[in-house]
Simulated assay, not measured.
Amino acid sequence: MTNELNHTAKEQPKKKRQAETPVEEKSTRWVQIRLIPIWLRIILVLLLFIVAGAIGVVFGYSVIGEGNASDALKWSTWEHILDILNGKQ
């Protein structure tokens, strides 16, 4: 009887596993539109550096150095600083 069961099990065709068919997806590309172009970002960053530097100079000259805030951005003040740095005074 066991031979018959084994024999009948062998006669049944084995079901092959069906290969899974890949689901076809439409490839959509994500395109991001920049609100601010890169060249404008670079200019904005440079302007922010200049503004931050000017604010730092005014703060340093008026608060730390105890001078007038308006004198910090005058050309005569910078000439004097450059003369000191170059050793002319």
Rank of each mutant, 00 (worst) to 15 (best):
M1A: 00
T2G: 05
T2A: 07
N3Q: 12
E4G: 00
E4Y: 00
L5Q: 09
L5H: 01
N6E: 02
N6M: 02
N6G: 07
H7M: 07
H7Q: 12
T8C: 04
A9F: 04
K10E: 14
E11G: 09
E11D: 15
P13D: 12
K14I: 11
K15D: 05
K16D: 11
R17V: 06
R17G: 11
Q18P: 02
A19R: 11
A19Q: 14
A19V: 13
E20P: 02
E20C: 06
E20T: 09
T21F: 08
V23E: 08
E24R: 13
E25T: 12
K26R: 15
K26V: 10
S27W: 08
T28Q: 09
W30V: 07
V31M: 04
Q32T: 11
Q32W: 07
Q32E: 11
Q32M: 12
Q32Y: 14
I33R: 14
R34W: 02
R34D: 03
L35Y: 10
P37A: 01
P37G: 03
I38R: 11
W39F: 08
W39I: 10
L40A: 10
L40C: 06
L40R: 14
L40W: 07
R41W: 06
R41I: 04
I42F: 01
I42E: 13
I43Q: 02
L44A: 15
V45E: 05
L46A: 13
L46C: 08
L46P: 00
L48I: 11
L48W: 04
F49V: 05
F49A: 08
I50W: 15
V51G: 04
G53C: 08
G53H: 01
G53D: 06
I55R: 01
I55D: 10
G56W: 09
G56P: 00
G56C: 03
V57D: 01
V57K: 03
V57H: 05
V58K: 00
V58A: 12
G60C: 09
G60Y: 09
Y61C: 01
S62P: 00
S62V: 00
V63N: 13
V63W: 10
I64Y: 14
G65L: 06
G65E: 10
G65Y: 06
G67T: 10
G67V: 00
G67E: 04
G67D: 14
N68Y: 08
N68L: 09
N68F: 05
A69N: 09
A69W: 10
A69M: 10
D71V: 09
A72S: 13
L73S: 10
L73I: 11
L73R: 09
K74W: 08
K74I: 13
K74V: 15
K74D: 15
K74M: 08
W75G: 11
W75Y: 13
S76I: 08
S76D: 15
T77R: 01
T77N: 02
W78I: 07
E79R: 15
H80S: 10
H80A: 12
I81C: 06
I81S: 01
L82A: 06
D83K: 04
L85W: 13
N86G: 04
G87A: 00
G87N: 00
G87E: 05
K88C: 00
K88L: 02
Q89D: 09
Q89F: 06
